[in-house]
Simulated scan of single mutants.
Amino acid sequence: MISRNRTPSRYVYYGLHLYFSGLSLRKASERLSQMYKRNHVSIWNWIQKYRPQKLKASRRRILEYIVDETMLKVGSEYIWLWVAIEPANRQILALSISKERNMFVAERYLSNLIKVHGKHPVSTDDGGTWYPMACRFLNLDHHIHSSYEKSVIERTMQYIKDRTESFDDYFPCRIKNCKLKHVRNWLRLFVDYHNNEIKHVN
């Protein structure tokens, strides 16, 4: 995929995952070498060739956005993870993090979402007022999750949370006032991997 030495793509992804999770190049290569022998220079080369891209507009017709947020722990602090998926193919359309959860953050998140994918109805849970207010401001149709939509987003959120526990359990952030760049990079890599896996399954 990325490397010239024909390293299987799953090991390239795992090496990038380790680095983006906060390990040094040498520590990442040590972990990776427990399964597949590669030195820190190999991982450095993969990083140079990997460019986390903003999510592109889906080629499929989007019926609606299923949107939700959840709390994650990064080091000693908590952050909010915002996720939007498309119900038909279950691909992640947008993913963002913030240190606050309110109408202004929701409006900015939805605004960035429609810049990429256009205006579509928004489905959310009934737990907060920030989504209805943000949708009203952006002139978006808003409704509460159906039972199907709720099950789809809950499975997706749990899937993400299961795989982001490494932030706190294995790679705690010790940088004071961290800007969370490594978290954003890891999440972009995760979305790339997740959407490609969904695409192959479909």
Rank of each mutant, 00 (worst) to 15 (best):
K199V: 04
W130H: 15
I66Q: 07
K37Q: 10
V67M: 04
Y131M: 14
A28R: 04
Y19R: 15
T124L: 08
R163H: 15
N196K: 15
R90S: 05
S21L: 10
C173G: 02
G118H: 10
L23W: 05
V191F: 06
R184G: 02
R26T: 09
D141C: 03
W44F: 14
I114Q: 13
M35W: 08
Y19H: 10
V183Q: 04
S21C: 09
H142Y: 06
I92Q: 11
S42A: 12
N112Y: 01
Y14G: 00
T7V: 15
K115F: 04
V105C: 00
E77I: 14
P132M: 01
R51T: 11
G128D: 09
H143Y: 15
K181Y: 01
H200P: 00
R101F: 00
D192Q: 14
L32Y: 02
A134F: 09
V67H: 00
R4V: 04
N196Y: 09
M35G: 00
R184S: 08
L110F: 08
W186C: 02
H145Y: 14
C173H: 01
V105Y: 00
R38K: 12
G15Y: 04
L55T: 10
L140A: 06
I160P: 04
T156G: 01
K54G: 06
N202K: 13
N5E: 11
R108A: 12
R61C: 07
K181E: 14
E30I: 12
D192E: 15
V201G: 00
S146Q: 04
K115G: 11
M35I: 11
Y13V: 10
I114K: 13
R184A: 10
I47K: 14
E69A: 08
Q91H: 09
S58V: 02
R184Q: 11
L187A: 02
E154Y: 00
S147D: 09
L187W: 01
Y13K: 13
D168A: 13
I66S: 03
Y78T: 06
L18N: 09
